Amino acid sequence: MRIISGKLRGIHMLAPANLPVRPTTDQAKESLFNILQNQFDFEDCEILDLFSGTGSVSIEFASRNASLVQSIDKHPGCIKWLEAVKNKYNLVQIQTLKADVFKYLEIYKKPYDIIFADPPYDLPTIPLIPKLVAENKLLKKDGVLIVEHPKFLKLHNLPGYTETRTYGNSAFSFFSEA
């Protein structure tokens, strides 16, 4: 994975091969950050990265000086890898938590400026993510939820839906406060 911008711009990282991940492609990540940087000053943003995996998106936000990046994943290897990267590059704004994303969304009530979710594409409960975010009021005013999913999955009928952008076989669906 490559860091696109910020203080770690251009750094390539090779995550362990044994992690159960499907990282967001560099092209899709670059497109996503082009959209977000026109809406947000990352230095003032608190980010929630759900199903953080290798932490590619978390690291990108931290590289761009986001004030807080909360990274949630249930796989211990993913958390261990992201903690190692955080420590190596002194990315103090990243906070990792080994947890089930759905339980986290039901229990924690802290609102965020940006929530990014990159669940496994075969996960049947992907549509629950926007519902739980809306029900638990986890977005700040003018905040955004982005759910990465396979392009064939349609999420347009869920609360707060605004648009979907497709990149290859992947799509980003955007949601605002419902």
Rank of each mutant, 00 (worst) to 15 (best):
G10I: 12
I3G: 00
I114S: 08
G168Y: 01
L97R: 12
V57G: 15
L123S: 10
F175Q: 05
N38Y: 04
K80A: 00
I72F: 05
E106R: 15
K110T: 15
L50G: 06
V21T: 10
I146K: 01
I94Q: 04
V144M: 11
Y108C: 12
T164D: 06
H156F: 06
S56R: 12
A171S: 15
T162N: 04
M1T: 13
G53I: 05
V85E: 03
P16D: 05
I3Q: 09
P124V: 03
L158E: 01
K109Y: 10
G6N: 14
P127L: 02
N90A: 11
H149G: 10
D49A: 08
P159Q: 07
Q27I: 08
F51Y: 12
K29L: 11
P130L: 01
I94F: 01
F51G: 02
F51V: 09
E60F: 13
A134H: 04
E60A: 13
Y104L: 05
G53C: 06
V144H: 04
V92M: 15
K154T: 10
R2S: 09
L8E: 14
I115Q: 11
P23W: 06
C78A: 02
H12T: 14
Y161E: 04
L82K: 00
L36V: 12
K7P: 09
E106S: 13
K109A: 10
D113W: 02
Q37H: 11
L123F: 14
E43C: 10
G6I: 15
G143S: 02
T25G: 09
S56Y: 14
I94V: 08
L132N: 02
G77M: 02
G168K: 05
Y161L: 01
I107Q: 13
R165Q: 10
F116N: 03
F152M: 11
L138T: 00
P20Y: 07
P120I: 08
L8H: 11
V92K: 15
S52R: 01
P120C: 06
E46N: 14
K109C: 06
F51W: 05
H12D: 15
F172L: 02
M1C: 13
L8V: 14
A84T: 08
K140M: 05
D142H: 13
